[in-house]
Simulated assay, not measured.
Amino acid sequence: MKVHEYQAKELLARYGVPVPNGRVAASADEAATVAADLGGPVAVKAQIHAGGRGKGGGIKLAGTPAQAEEAASQIIGMQLVTHQTGPEGRIVKKVLVEEQIQTERELYLGIVVDSGSGRPVVMASEAGGVDIEQVAAKSPEKIHKAFVDPAVGFQPYEGRQLAFATNLGGDLLRPAVGLMSGLYKAFVAKDSSLAEINPLVVTSDGRLLALDAKMNFDDNALFRHPEIAELRDVDEEDPLEVQAEELGINN
């Protein structure tokens, strides 16, 4: 099961992962209110279960609440087509309005279960802001990995190794290790199949922030997490698969 960016960020924030200030809005008026509450320039981001939203016109910057309202009016209701939606696209029903962030660097941080070892693998790369699959195909040496022993969990030394490998030393070392630990704790606690921050940014004032976040969950473990199951958005799923599930038809 997938969740929206704003939902993933809310979950990760509970585990100490720093995220930009923001709230979800279902209307242009609501977006203007959120922008006014934030009190500065904002990003208005379409919420669909697909990447490539910016290139498709699903992310707009706004300097005032009025501009945020206008941006949201253009995004909400649009048929957003990205490289992950297919030509039919997805209808946008909500936007995330959050503070604009001035960035110095974009990195990648993600966790999946390694199919070979069955262990969680934490991956970090300085090549953030692009699909990690592209990096793996073209420059696999840019992806640094830590295979975690589930019996002992993610260790600080593993975090330090990944931090140094991605040039997150100095004042960023401790925050980087803490952020990785928080991401791992969320991944394990919620039976996640994917936890990804892309990009993880270093801000102009020297902070680490999850500028975008993605979490997928093991469908077979949702009975243990009703709070996660409640986040499901069937409008983002294949209608035929939803109907088959309702009829009790399994693949």
Score class of each variant (00 low, 15 high):
E237S: 02
F217H: 12
I75D: 12
A71R: 07
G248W: 04
D212K: 10
L107H: 14
L61C: 06
R224V: 00
G39L: 11
E5I: 10
G153R: 01
K214S: 07
V24A: 15
E70C: 01
V188C: 00
L96M: 12
D114Q: 05
Q79I: 10
R160E: 15
Q67A: 15
V130A: 06
V92P: 09
V202N: 02
R53T: 07
D131L: 06
N251K: 11
V19N: 08
I76M: 08
V95R: 02
V34C: 02
D235Q: 06
Q84E: 15
H4N: 11
G89C: 07
A146N: 00
A72V: 02
Q161D: 14
G169H: 12
G22T: 13
A26P: 01
L209F: 06
A68D: 02
M1R: 14
A31C: 05
N216I: 03
V130T: 15
A127S: 08
G58K: 12
L240H: 02
G54T: 06
E70M: 02
Q100V: 10
Y15T: 11
S117G: 03
Y184V: 04
G170W: 13
L162D: 01
L231V: 08
A50Y: 12
A68L: 09
E241C: 05
Q100P: 00
L211F: 07
P20I: 05
E126W: 01
I101S: 04
A136R: 08
P150K: 03
P150S: 06
S117A: 08
P199Y: 04
A71H: 11
V81N: 09
E10V: 02
P175S: 06
V242D: 02
K138R: 15
H144Y: 14
A68H: 02
L172K: 12
L222P: 14
V92D: 03
L11P: 01
T203G: 07
